[in-house]
Write a protein that binds this DNA or RNA. Structure first.
Lengths: 212, 212
DNA sequence: TTGACATTGAAACAATTGTTTGATACAAAC
DNA sequence: GTTTGTATCAAACAATTGTTTCAATGTCAA
């Protein structure tokens, strides 16, 4: 095994373990000792490969989060019946499915949403990249699609609120797992998750007010 | 001014400033030096009055968060047209109004939701109290009300998901302020907030599927 | 006024944090 | 085989953390 490979392996392991821990506990709670121990490498390796802890965090978003959301977007686009002029129902369904049962594994999805929810709660510099590179463009794309799809033309603000509401539910049911389980007594088993997807799609569609 | 008053003042100030800071930054990021400085008292006062930092956090929930959610609940009950057998629309409207334009000031509300969202994201022992004392009972009450109010009797699970979805939106639009502003470019001014209340009520009602 | 008690204050404490250092191991280039 | 450069390692670093200590202060009861 070449030296280059070994270095890459360490770097990749660090990114993987760091993302998992950051998503689970948040940036400040996780220690570099925790990450390096999980990655099975030396304490100094984070500073060697990434400069400092903050840069590692940024790099997690750049090399893990962004590619993943691009995969989701691709899945969404491919799920649409036709490239332009779909029904609102088709758009919402493709959207919810892409995020909830798209290309991500269950563990991946949980990591993905927990990470971004922490950023939404307390935005850091990482959020700037995410907003400008992914969120704002995707948001514009969606409003454009929905505007031409909705029968009665709603205002820009109404469209915006509708999309935000759909994302609100997708985010909520993913990041509030533990709480929902404790409040309702319902476990997040395969059954319940499938039920959730159906519910979110149905609730969102009705919420749009175009399902009738 | 008596000694007792002064002591109470310090304790109250500590609780106020602690809640504001915990809501803003989260438990681990906030330092006891930050809190005591904001409260204008000595570094040791937290340990003197509350034993340790963790107890202060618990006490914030007991003496600030719980009373506030009881006020909201009272507001909700009083807003209902009649004590039993209301329409789903009336229930949802009273619910959303109680949380979004109820007895809480705007700043209070933001603190309130940011605090509980952090607990939902990463539950501590404080969450146990909240779940058993407030959430689960309120949840049961709501399902009971809605069950008898809904025309077609939906399953327990369906009712549960509907209520969770409403809370998902209430929580989301309160805690994701900064993110929403950055994504959409829309400020959280009086206008927008009023618009939000209307939207959440409408979206939720449609989502319930009983507005037709 | 005196003594007991509760609160505040400044300083120090031990533990943990992210980061830096210099030695070591090792693969590729000459 | 020597040199060069990179990655890893144990150890130490300076800074910050929550907590403790003990003297000083002020209040109320006797």
């Amino acid at each position: 095994m070449g030296k280059k490979d070994k270095m890459d392996m360490t770097k990749e392991r660090l990114l993987d373990e760091a993302e998992a821990l950051f998503a689970q506990k948040g940036f400040d709670v996780v220690t570099v000792r925790e990450i390096t121990a999980a990655a099975g490498c030396n304490l100094a390796s984070i500073n060697y490969h990434f400069g400092n802890k903050q840069n590692l965090y940024i790099e997690v978003f750049r090399s893990r989060w962004l590619p993943r959301v691009r995969r989701i977007h691709e899945f969404f686009t491919n799920s649409l019946p036709s490239q332009n002029s779909c029904s609102p129902a088709a758009i919402v369904q493709a959207l919810a499915r892409a995020f909830l049962e798209g290309p991500l594994s269950d563990e991946e999805r949980q990591r993905h949403f927990r990470l971004i929810v922490k950023e939404i709660a307390n935005p850091t510099t990482a959020f700037d990249h995410v907003v400008t590179e992914v969120m704002r463009p995707f948001f514009k794309e969606l409003t454009g699609m929905l505007r031409s799809a909705m029968p009665d033309d709603q205002g820009e603000e109404q469209l915006m609120l509708n999309i935000l509401s759909i994302f609100a539910m997708v985010l909520h049911f993913n990041f509030a797992r533990a709480a929902i389980t404790r409040i309702t007594g319902r476990e997040y088993d395969t059954d319940f998750k499938a039920r959730l997807v159906d519910h979110i799609i149905k609730f969102s569609l009705e919420g749009l007010g175009t399902s009738k």
